[in-house]
């Protein structure tokens, strides 16, 4: 990552007069986003709410979110990186190759108009979704967008923010980072955290058949992962903690029903902007919380003899 220039959602509410959604469909995927944070609210410095904001949607197809936008830019599938790179050149008044512009599905007029609007903004924000970060180019696409937002600060205030997914995936990312330095794809087999997405990510470990047991919490890989990964989950002892019976539960050896966090179990949720929100249960649950189950499993594991026979307490030479 070349860095990230971002803000909390309240800054968008109070200041953003120019908003780009890139590769996402918030109208359907984040239904409260428009009304609560980005489009509709009247903010301290955008007192007329929606009227004070210009909204641009960039996507490969027309979604329900298009209706909410002032400008829709339809990019040819797989050409997001090219568009972002051209925009990075245009903001710096560098020449661009018309043939490359033509390949993106957009015209130079559309792009120069966008750049002019971006520069005129007092506070611009770019939200980007899985349509950008999970398609061809993947993290290169996100990096290009984040760099564009950073570079825009030479002209005006500009930030970018990923539209993170469901549940508390941001919370998991935040906690893993403070405990291990890494957000996901972490391997503890040497006794200290190592990180290599593509090698240590859950799906890779399962497809290769490297894992000999699985504890699944707050996810349903049985519904989303490729078949070889699912087959391996069925082969090994898999334990699922979930308030409901999931696809993964059906192929697991053990399913433990737990209380629903936020409804019948307390906790903390991290918003997509990493702002923590306390979750207060409204109901009592007959089931234990995830935390309690994990704590009891952990205590039982701790009672077993230690399996790491490390030479010393730390190493200055990671391998």
């Amino acid at each position: 990552m070349g860095g990230k220039v971002t803000c909390t959602l309240g800054e968008v509410k109070n200041r953003a007069d120019f908003i780009v959604f890139w590769g996402g469909n918030p109208a359907e995927c984040h239904p409260r986003h428009f009304t609560k944070y980005s489009l509709m609210p009247k903010g301290k410095h955008v007192p007329n709410g929606r009227k004070d904001r210009t909204v641009v949607l960039v996507d490969i197809r027309e979604t329900k979110s298009v209706k909410a936008a002032d400008i829709f830019l339809q990019v040819r599938p797989g050409k997001d990186f090219e568009v972002l790179t051209i925009l990075r050149a245009l903001i710096k008044d560098q020449a661009v190759d018309p043939r490359q512009v033509a390949e993106t599905g957009l015209t130079l007029e559309q792009l120069t108009d966008l750049v002019a609007r971006m520069k005129r903004a007092k506070f611009g924000v770019m939200f980007f979704g899985m349509g950008l970060s999970m398609t061809r180019g993947k993290h290169m696409n996100s990096a290009a967008l984040l760099t564009l937002a950073a570079e825009m600060n030479a002209f005006t205030k500009f930030v970018a923010m990923p539209m993170r997914g469901h549940g508390n995936v941001t919370g998991a990312d935040v906690v893993m980072r403070w405990q291990t330095g890494y957000p996901f794809g972490i391997n503890f087999s040497r006794g200290y955290p190592r990180y290599n997405p593509g090698e240590f990510s859950t799906v890779d470990l399962l497809v290769r058949g490297d894992a000999d047991a699985a504890l699944i919490l707050g996810a349903d890989p049985g519904a989303t992962m490729p078949q070889p990964a699912i087959d391996h989950l069925a082969r090994i002892p898999t334990i699922v903690l979930d308030p409901k019976v999931t696809h993964t539960s059906r192929l697991a050896r053990v399913h433990i029903t737990t209380a629903v966090t936020g409804i019948s179990a307390p906790g903390t949720g991290y918003r997509m902007d990493e702002v923590p929100i306390p979750l207060r249960p409204a109901l009592k649950s007959p089931y234990p919380t995830d935390e309690e189950v994990i704590r009891r499993i952990h205590e039982a594991v701790c009672a077993k003899p230690d399996w790491i026979h490390a030479n010393g307490q730390y190493t200055t030479n990671q391998v």
Binding site: T180, R190, Q318
Partner: peptide, 27 residues
């Protein structure tokens, strides 16, 4: 925590604490 996210290459060369029953892993 933002800084941790931005410096994965430094984590690789850092001193690594190995977990035990009384000590947590870390970098």
């Amino acid at each position: 925590n933002f800084a941790r996210a931005m410096t994965p290459e430094d984590h690789r060369r850092a001193v690594a604490f190995i977990r035990s029953q009384s000590r947590r892993a870390g970098l």
